[in-house]
Write a protein that binds this DNA or RNA. Structure first.
Lengths: 171, 171
DNA sequence: GTTTTATAGTTAGGTGGCTAACTATAAATG
DNA sequence: CATTTATAGTTAGCCACCTAACTATAAAAC
């Protein structure tokens, strides 16, 4: 979550113009983007919590739905973008509540296979209708053309992001 | 943070078309946006941690810089978008390390005033040059015209977001 | 002017991430 | 084949946020 509800204004940057590297338009967009992204994440979280599931758990169920034969916990972690340690906790909770099940793989005793259960599928089915319509509502002010433009922007931003990661200078 | 590195593709939504409320283009943009926003937040975090400060603390210092005479902790919490309890912890840590100082307000013994110290200012000054140039780099693929378009999009999204909040149906 | 209500800040305890270290098994190497 | 190295998963402990409850003070209402 990004902690800055009151975004700085263009005037706030005026006293900082001694810094040659300061680009107010980039700064403003950066903050605005973090703010919106963070708000969207919060809304997403709250929505799921009101349906009795955490974001992490929900995403695991969504991923499991993609492949009937199940996933290794490490693949789930990779797909979800969390550590294996975190995935252990998510799967523990989901299994305890009966939404997923672990199966042993006898060819390699280190490995495990995780599958969604019938109960897990049912949970998703109760959430989906609201979920889809809420997201559609969020985007309802935008035309398809606008969506296309934003999507292109996000790709450019991703390029900036991966460059940063590589350079390790990052912001 | 948004847990879903492998975003769903358009094909992933095909089996879900039984849901009338499903709008694949909205869903894809929603996920793409969450993903990029989350990546940006992570980069921002990592950058600050490499400079020895947490995001929450950094934002408090940025806010304090805006007003010489300082802020009440509750105003800081409001501006930062965190709870008062969280702000107590942030100010505790910053004060312990000498970056801010609490002052009593004698006209109302419940209240406190928090100000940035010289040491706090110095810390920001060591971070700023890198900070500004890193953000400028992130945005370097975009023209000013593009920034303007994105900014407009984000405002539209914010409208969707505040509508959701009001409706409490939210996604 | 006593009592009720509201406000500022803190404390206590919970959650969901993380890293680092550990266990068990498998694969590679001498 | 014995030993080293790598891999899958888990455990333990940290951090930053949250909510709910508490303390002290101030303001409002009888």
């Amino acid at each position: 979550m990004f902690c800055m509800k009151d975004l700085p204004t263009r005037e706030d940057f005026a006293p900082l113009e001694v810094y040659a590297s300061l680009e107010p338009s980039s700064m403003l967009l950066f903050y605005q983007f973090l703010r919106s992204g963070s708000d969207l994440l919060t809304i997403f979280d709250d929505f799921l919590i009101s349906h009795g599931i955490s974001q992490g758990r929900f995403v695991v169920l969504l991923i499991l739905r993609r492949k009937e034969e199940g996933f290794a916990p490490s693949d789930l972690a990779e797909s979800a973008g969390v550590t294996r340690a975190t995935m252990t906790g998510l799967v523990d909770g989901l299994e305890r509540d009966g939404f997923v099940k672990r199966y042993d793989l006898h060819e390699d005793k280190r490995r495990t296979n995780v599958r969604i259960t019938e109960k897990g599928e049912e949970l998703l089915k109760t959430i989906f209708p609201d979920y889809f319509s809420s997201i559609a509502d969020l985007m309802s002010d935008m035309t398809d053309e606008e969506k296309r433009i934003i999507s292109k922007f996000l790709l450019k931003l991703d390029i900036g992001i991966s460059n940063s990661k590589g350079a390790k200078s990052v912001a």
